[in-house]
Simulated assay, not measured.
Amino acid sequence: MTELTADRRRYTGKEINRKRRAEGKIPGVIYGKGIETRSIEFQRKPLEKFLDTARRGTVVVKMTVQDGAEGKESYAVLKETQSHPLTGRVTHVDFYEVALGKKFRVEVPLRIKGKAVGIEMGGVLDVVTRSLEVECTPDHVPEFLDLDVTSLGIGDALRLADVGFPEGVVPTEKDLRMTLAAVHTPKAEAAPAVVEETVAAEGAEGASVAEPGAKEEKPEKEAKKKE
């Protein structure tokens, strides 16, 4: 099991954190259900070495937090990292404390294996989800859950019931019919709509049009009344 050492952090604020990072320290927190959230800091090099191979939420570490002369040991999983937008170097980490022998919930990534036969037939592989939430004890957390898509033809799908979960690991989702990956027929591109030109009728709608050569009919004069 990976081991990490951190120091209890008593300071707060952006300026002091920036100064500590320049000195090779990385701030973080460790928290958990029913326990006090503690501010901590790590030496940059050992933390970055751990992060190079760790996967969020799937690696349990033995954490020793030094608080002066005292050190407290616990077990935790990496929950979140923050990085500098330009350099990409880690600037903050969050760990979630867990108890050995006690079940907890954690997201485990799916690892897609193989090439679906439906792709050779012109189909498209659609991976619906990239991870699954499972419940297990810290010593049973898998690094990956494998999903072999090799046998999928067009119209086929892999569902939650098709996943082989290790002993002691159960999904929190109870609907075993939930689709995880499927091969679909590619959607045909819509043909461009043909716009028919409409010839405007001559004259205003509802107006009468006189025929060529027709004389305009004049109203008859009223006959003079006889005296």
Rank of each mutant, 00 (worst) to 15 (best):
V98I: 10
A99F: 02
T37P: 15
Q43V: 09
R20W: 14
S131T: 14
V77S: 04
E135N: 06
V98W: 10
I119P: 08
R105F: 03
M63T: 06
H84Q: 05
Q43F: 02
E36F: 07
R18C: 05
A99P: 02
K72Q: 13
T12E: 15
Y75Q: 10
V124Y: 04
T37G: 13
L132A: 02
G13K: 00
T53F: 08
Y75F: 11
E23Y: 03
K72S: 12
K45G: 00
R55A: 08
Y75S: 07
Q43A: 12
V98D: 02
E97A: 11
L132Q: 05
A22Q: 15
G24V: 08
R18M: 11
R38W: 15
V90H: 01
G122M: 00
V128F: 02
R18P: 13
I35L: 13
K19F: 12
V29A: 07
G57C: 05
T37I: 04
R18I: 12
Y75G: 04
E120D: 13
R10G: 02
V124Q: 13
G68T: 09
K62S: 09
K33H: 14
K14H: 13
I30M: 11
M121Y: 08
G32V: 10
T64E: 07
G68H: 03
L100I: 09
D94E: 06
R9D: 03
K33A: 12
E41A: 02
I30F: 06
L125A: 12
G28R: 00
D52K: 12
E70Q: 10
F50T: 14
R55K: 11
K72T: 13
Q43W: 06
G118M: 07
K79H: 11
S131W: 14
T87W: 09
G123E: 09
T64I: 10
K33V: 09
V106R: 03
